[in-house]
């Protein structure tokens, strides 16, 4: 047996649940250990990822245009977009926090949207170079995804804490739903992308 070949080429499938390697027959398509259906690759991986990704692109626009929260303080109402909130932090001389929020709510979602698009292009056009690097990009995207929830959690805490009747109050804006949807959809998109497709296309 050639050691350097894909398991699929040998007719072997790794169960995505428990990792058990088995040879499926016509009669049994289920994993012997955990009962999962066996799939050599994630079914319809590219289609699903593309669908989820285009929805995230569409929602990314309202997420950045509309206010993500409204702050009412002593009768003055201020509306903040994601970018506006970061600007306000810079104005108040809170650079480290501003950078943190910039990374979590602007750079990470952008990295995910563009990164997954590139991964899809890679699979579609069968790019031959740097497969290992592309796999790393996939791993970074999968790891970093959840951290964009930072802004949503921060708003949830502010809504809970800043509630002093007429003195001051924080209300979540319509962009928060759109932004949360972008985070969730890109997380699902990263999950539905199968990095093994990158390696299947390598001619060696």
């Amino acid at each position: 047996m050639k050691p350097n070949a894909a398991a699929l080429a040998q007719g072997l499938i790794r169960c995505h649940g428990c990792g058990h390697l088995s040879k499926p027959t016509r009669l049994s398509r289920k994993c012997r250990v955990c009962g999962n259906y066996l799939h050599a690759r994630i079914p319809h991986s590219v289609q699903r990822t593309t669908a989820l990704l285009s929805s995230s692109y569409a929602l990314y626009i309202p997420a950045n245009i509309f206010p993500i929260m409204t702050v009412m303080q002593l009768g003055v109402t201020e509306q903040h977009t994601i970018l506006g909130g970061i600007m306000a932090l810079i104005d108040k001389d809170m650079m480290p926090i501003a950078i943190l929020v910039l990374v979590a709510s602007i750079l990470v979602p952008l990295l995910k949207l563009l990164g997954i698009s590139l991964l899809l292009l890679n699979v579609h056009y069968r790019w031959q170079r740097n497969a290992r690097l592309w796999t790393k990009l996939y791993r970074v995207i999968a790891f970093v995804g959840r951290w964009s929830m930072l802004d949503i959690f921060m708003i949830s805490i502010l809504v809970a804490v800043v509630d002093l009747g007429g003195v001051s109050k924080v209300i979540a804006g319509p962009a928060s739903t759109a932004f949360a949807a972008v985070v969730v959809l890109t997380m699902f998109a990263a999950k539905s992308f199968d990095p093994r497709l990158i390696w299947d296309n390598q001619l060696e």
């Binding site: 894909a6 398991a7 072997l12 790794r14 990792g19 040879k23 497969a131 796999t135 996939y138 390696w199």
Partner: peptide, 18 residues
Amino acid sequence: MKNIKLDACPECDLLLNQ
């Protein structure tokens, strides 16, 4: 064939000795 001694990488599907 014995499957016990083999393993596959979940991210690139390389067939490996366990």
